[in-house]
């Protein structure tokens, strides 16, 4: 209503819809200056700053995310390593146990062998000692017997051959009498 009224009232005066030339000139110039300074110089600057700000914020988030991812990878790695180490330890224990068992078995074997050897050696020694003792005893007995016999018979048995013959005979008699006695 206001518009219509004013437009009607304006009919006889200067028509407000007809622009003044000087205002057009001032308008276009002031707009171009604003467009140049604000639109051409200042807006690109703020756009750059806004982009940087977005970058900074997004960069921060991105960095945090990266750090987290890295931490997770690291954790996973540690966990893997730990599991591996555990497995390794178990494996080593098992191996050690096996080795120990093997060594024990070997040692037992060896010890048994040694013991057998010792026993055998001892047996051999005993046998040898017995033989030696037996031989010595036989000689001693022979000598004693001849001595005894000589004394009894009163006869000197200087002759070796004779002596030995007598001893042998004596011994043979002894042995056979022995055998008879044992039987």
């Amino acid at each position: 209503m206001t518009m219509a009224a004013t437009l009607l009232a304006q009919e006889e005066g200067a028509n407000p819809l007809i622009p003044h030339t000087y205002e057009l000139v001032v308008g276009i110039f002031s707009f171009l200056v604003v467009l140049f300074v604000v639109g051409r110089i200042l807006v690109p600057r703020i756009q750059k700053t806004l982009a940087e700000r977005t970058d900074a914020i997004e960069g921060g988030i991105k960095r945090a995310e990266e750090a987290q991812a890295q931490a997770q990878v690291l954790q996973q790695e540690y966990r893997d390593q730990l599991a591996e180490a555990r497995q390794e330890a178990a494996r080593l224990r098992e191996e050690a146990r096996e080795q120990a068992a093997q060594i024990k078995a070997e040692l037992r074997e060896e010890a048994q062998a040694e013991a057998r050897r010792l026993v055998e050696a001892a047996h051999a020694q005993i046998e040898a000692d017995r033989q030696a003792a037996f031989a010595q005893l036989r000689a001693e007995i022979g000598r004693l017997s001849t001595d005894l016999a000589g004394r009894i018979v009163g006869e000197s048995l200087e002759d070796e051959a004779r002596q030995s013959r007598i001893v042998d005979r004596f011994l043979d008699e002894l042995e056979s009498s022995n055998a008879q006695a044992v039987r």
Binding site: E23, S30, F31, V34, V38, L42, R45, I46, T49
Partner: peptide
């Protein structure tokens, strides 16, 4: 109106310049 148009242009440029000439993050 002409004076105010010029003043407006100066004002817009001045304020925007003060704000965006050396923009801070």
């Amino acid at each position: 109106p002409v004076l105010l148009a010029m003043l407006s242009a100066v004002l817009v440029i001045g304020v925007t310049w003060a704000a965006f000439a050396k923009p801070k993050l």
